[in-house]
Amino acid sequence: MRLVTQRLARQLVLVPLVAVASYFLMASLPLTTETDAKRQVSKELAASYQRDLGIGEPLGFMRPWQKLFRGERLGTSAQGITGDELLLKLSGSVGVGLMALPLALAWALGFALLRTRWRRGKWATLGDVVPAVAFGTPVFIPALLLAPSVVERGNMLPELCAALCTSVWPGIFLGTLVGDSLETELSRDYVRTALGKGLTYGTVLRRHVLPNVWPAMLDAVGPVATSLLAGSFAAERVFGLPYFGQLYVLAVLNKQVAVVVVATTTFASLLVLVSLAVEVLRYAVDPRSREATT
């Protein structure tokens, strides 16, 4: 149990680390100067920069969070954000991510099965080419190809298309890992013994092989979740979805630094939550992880 607690603590420490690092990076930016000619941002933005980040105040790094929890607006009136709006936008992005997750699993399963079949035949090279093609396809490329149908004609759900575009690479990545793991497990003696005792292939797969493949899948969930959430930034931009990714990109483009600090920390917290969930799930489904930690 001590090891699990240690791992959880290591994950959790990332949140204050990101909060403090992003705050001090943003607070040290030379965005405001005394002379109007040299100032990089508008007067309103410069004022919000000093006000929102509490520059020069003791415990100034707490200021963006205080404002957020009090329901006050961070950033300028036109492009700023309140805590409720941030949560709403975050839930939109998480929704897209949750739609992308089953699609990624479908890609993974399909690719893992095809890869196992290809490996025995003349299509073996495809097993290496498909992941390279998927990896070499940034999310904005399929989004740009789909966008004319979605944005112009509006005959498809933009959220679904965003999820579809976002899910390709994580799905293929997961499929590669699962395929490799599946192939290793299928070649083991216990599978041959179970088949020899008369169990059907499906039963062997369900009862014996899949429980041994779960750990490999769980190891990949963290990177997959990161890819899905980070990929949604580009998809939201192309499909014009007003969620967290769009908020983040616009905050960086418009130098809304307080929003950048809060959004970066929120994103890190979300990733930490996913990691914590994976740790708990691993503890529940993988007996080896329980044995290793007792």
Binding site: Q11, L14, V18, S22, L25, T226, S227, L229, A230, F233, Y248, V249, V252, V260, T264, F267, A268, L271, V272, S275
Partner: peptide, 11 residues
């Protein structure tokens, strides 16, 4: 490693 590259590069 925990944070996505795109996000950090933007900052």
């Amino acid at each position: 490693f925990a944070l996505p590259d795109v996000l950090v590069v933007m900052v």
